[in-house]
Simulated assay, not measured.
Amino acid sequence: MVAADSEGPKDPGIRCPSHRMFRRERSIPLQSSAAALCNNLSVLQLPARNLTLFGVVHGPSAQVLSAAPDGVPLAQRQLHVKEGAGVSPPHITQVHWCVLPFRVLLVLTSHRGIQMYESDGSIMVYWHALNSGDASSVQAVFAQGIAASGHFICVAKGPNIMLSEELAGHQTPVTDIAAEPVQGQDGMADMVTADDSGSLCVWRSGPEFTLLTRIPGFGVPCSSVQLWQGIIAAGYGNGQVHLYEATTGTLNIQINAHARAICALDLAPEVGKLLSAAEDTFVHIWKLSRNPESGCIEVEHCHGECVPDTQVCGAQFCDPSGSSFAVTGYDLTEILRFGSV
């Protein structure tokens, strides 16, 4: 076990650099502030066009922005919830880009349904309405949690996973989904889902989805989950990050990373950097690796960043190498950018 608090790591088992690795860069203005939702930021890098796209949710709308490498905003588009049945106000719960083998789609989830757009948000290509059921029911129907898994787009709806089929694996609402391609197996991918009780389910995707293992919760919601080289990183409402073996569900490392609830995790797949952001105003970056002799997971604390007086609600790396990241905060009308020193 290793431990850290909002000021940085205290446990001698966590290696820590002697210098700052990131510095604040030019912010990107928003038309509306970010909503207080977990994982409320999605980033898509377009190297061929020298652009980066950002997606942020604000109530019934999502803002899709494009920016140059220096942070100069170039264009902004507002996407709204499609009209549908129901008496409750429509709100978007998440916006996320899904990178498929031959296509990139922008996916919005809401209390109304699932909307899929071309990557720039210009054209809606698919709309899936949620069945609101009996209006007198006290159970809310919504979609939340998005991931691309092979040729599939996986979206959480209530306690189940909506794919080309519906997979029942959770007893409480699903909060997040993460997926990673299986090397050397085309069209196959590992996927992990998290829920409000803290339980995790690990799946093998393909023509048929198979539940590989179930990791029991401990009564604390898991708000965000990531998957990298067989390592599951799960962020919880008590500020902890747990690192599990995906194949066995074994807990290898517990990091007391934050003083308040974690709202977002992200991974830079090329280098194994893990980003954690929480309501305590801090963003931490960790380096994951495996000991070549024992095969055990090891963690190094790389950087800590405070966003003063801000309830952070979204954070994501802006490139696969983890050389830059962006942050959103509740009632903050800008996207904060940080780049390597």
Rank of each mutant, 00 (worst) to 15 (best):
T213R: 07
G59S: 15
P159W: 10
A140H: 14
I161L: 15
V43D: 00
A246M: 06
L336T: 01
A48Q: 14
R26A: 02
T175M: 10
Q63G: 09
T328A: 08
Q311S: 12
L274F: 09
A315M: 02
A326T: 04
H284W: 06
I153Q: 04
D176P: 00
D196Q: 15
D331Q: 15
F152H: 11
Q316K: 15
A326E: 01
V241S: 07
E118T: 15
G217T: 07
C306W: 03
T213S: 05
D309Y: 12
V271G: 05
I262V: 07
R15M: 10
G187Y: 06
A233M: 08
S340T: 14
Q185R: 12
I255T: 06
Y126I: 03
H96W: 13
P9Q: 04
A259R: 09
V107M: 05
I262A: 02
L275D: 06
G184F: 11
T250P: 02
S199H: 08
A3N: 08
S137H: 11
V241A: 02
N50V: 12
G235F: 04
D176N: 13
V87I: 13
H301T: 04
R337T: 00
V104S: 02
M116E: 09
G133V: 12
I14R: 03
D280A: 00
L336A: 00
C313H: 00
S205Y: 00
T210I: 07
E83V: 08
Q94F: 04
L79S: 03
I262C: 01
T281Y: 06
V87H: 13
E293Y: 13
S197Q: 10
T281K: 08
I177S: 03
I253E: 08
H91Q: 14
P181D: 11
I161E: 05
H91E: 15
V155A: 06
E245T: 13
Q144I: 05
G198Y: 04
G239I: 04
N160F: 14
P269N: 04
H80P: 00
G230S: 12
F209I: 07
E7M: 08
A143T: 11
V107L: 07
G59N: 14
A135Q: 13
H258F: 00
V155Q: 07
L105D: 09
F338K: 00
E118D: 10
G304M: 02
V104E: 04
W97R: 00
P308E: 01
H258M: 00
Q185D: 08
Q115A: 13
V125L: 05
Q76R: 08
P320L: 07
P89G: 02
C318V: 00
C263H: 04
K273C: 09
Q31M: 12
Q76H: 10
W127H: 13
S18T: 12
Q229H: 14
G59F: 15
V107I: 10
Q183S: 12
N252K: 10
T248P: 03
Q183C: 05
T248M: 07
K157P: 05
